[in-house]
Computed example of a mutant assay.
Amino acid sequence: MKCNLLPLGYRQHHGLWQRPACLGLLLMLTVCLGAGLFFQYQLHREKAYYTDCLYPL
Rank of each mutant, 00 (worst) to 15 (best):
D52E: 15
A48M: 13
Y49L: 15
F38I: 10
F38Y: 14
L6Y: 03
R19S: 06
F38Q: 06
R11P: 00
R45V: 12
W17M: 09
L29M: 07
V31R: 09
C32I: 09
L37M: 11
G15A: 02
R19T: 11
L29W: 05
G24M: 04
G15I: 01
F39T: 13
A35S: 08
R11W: 00
A48E: 15
L26I: 06
Y41L: 12
N4F: 03
R11V: 00
A35C: 09
L8V: 11
L6F: 03
L27V: 06
G34P: 00
T51Q: 15
F38L: 14
Q40S: 12
G34C: 13
L16S: 11
C32Q: 10
L16H: 05
Q42I: 07
R19L: 14
E46A: 15
G9A: 14
N4R: 05
Y10D: 06
G9M: 04
H13Q: 11
Y49A: 15
T30S: 12
N4W: 02
H13C: 02
N4V: 15
T51E: 15
Q42E: 10
G36R: 09
L26Q: 08
L5G: 01
L29H: 04
V31H: 08
T30Q: 07
G36D: 10
L29V: 06
C22F: 08
T30V: 10
T30L: 12
L29K: 02
Y49D: 14
W17E: 08
D52S: 15
L26R: 11
M28L: 12
L6H: 01
L6T: 02
C32N: 09
G24Q: 05
K47L: 10
W17P: 04
L25R: 10
N4T: 05
E46N: 06
R11K: 02
G24L: 14
L33T: 07
C22A: 14
C3P: 03
C22S: 13
V31M: 08
F39N: 03
L8T: 10
Y49M: 14
L25S: 11
G15D: 01
Y49Q: 13
H13Y: 08
Y50I: 14
L8E: 12
Q12C: 03
Y41P: 00
L43F: 12
C3F: 01
L6E: 12
H44M: 15
C22E: 13
L5I: 03
L23S: 07
L6P: 01
